[in-house]
Amino acid sequence: MLEIENLHATVGGKPILNGLDLAVAPGEVHAVMGPNGSGKSTLSYVLSGRDGYEVTEGGVLFKGRNLLDLEPEERAAAGLFLAFQYPVEIPGVTNMTFLKHALNGLKVQRGEEELDAMQFLKLVRQKAKALGMSDDMLKRAVNVGFSGGEKKRNEILQMAVLEPAFAVLDETDSGLDIDALKIVADGVNALRGPERSMLVITHYQRLLDYIVPDRVHVLAAGRIVTSGGKELALRLEDEGYGAFAARAA
């Protein structure tokens, strides 16, 4: 599904990713863990096509296509989704309007038929209900005045409505209390399936108690320094990142 090979990327001329290799097969959930500054968020932004992140070497294949050639909206249409670490507030655009433009934007790009207003409303209400989100939250401007937990839940709602083939969850656990974490994790787990892969980027092992990964990778100084099963996350928790980071040098 996703193959990252020898990826080098700079931000403002500063090298952040330094030869990152990673492959995620369909249906798999991989976790990328690493200390602050190891390049976790840069990886998510490079994958989603944000301005200011320059790939200097290597490449990314997504479902056999060169992902890096695509505009952000084309990546979305290809099935990629990034759950933002810091979801953006958009005053004046309601959640409903946002979701409608997103879903129909994807459908138009894929040559599929757009949903009519009734079908759309039904779909969104059903997904929102499953995440314990009220109609009121759907009518409010995107993320404006939302608590940290509500913002993260909103990201998962978008994911549930857009049904991406590949989701990158960038520190989705940050700023969540344990109840919110469970709701978000349940939402994510409900989306797991044989055709859907995920890359869960996190600083802490805690999230992985709820979203159990097939593989865990440790990122340090812009490279994957070690990989293993879900037990690797527990070892990290005990030993800290220091020992792993030393190997990157």
Binding site: R75, F81, L82, I90, F98, H101, A102, G105
Partner: peptide, 19 residues
């Protein structure tokens, strides 16, 4: 906000219009 919309599949022109 523009990047957020585009990353969700809204084409750039439409995203600008919306904003």
């Amino acid at each position: 906000a523009l990047f957020y919309l585009r990353s969700r599949g809204v084409p750039e022109g439409q995203a600008r219009q919306l904003l």
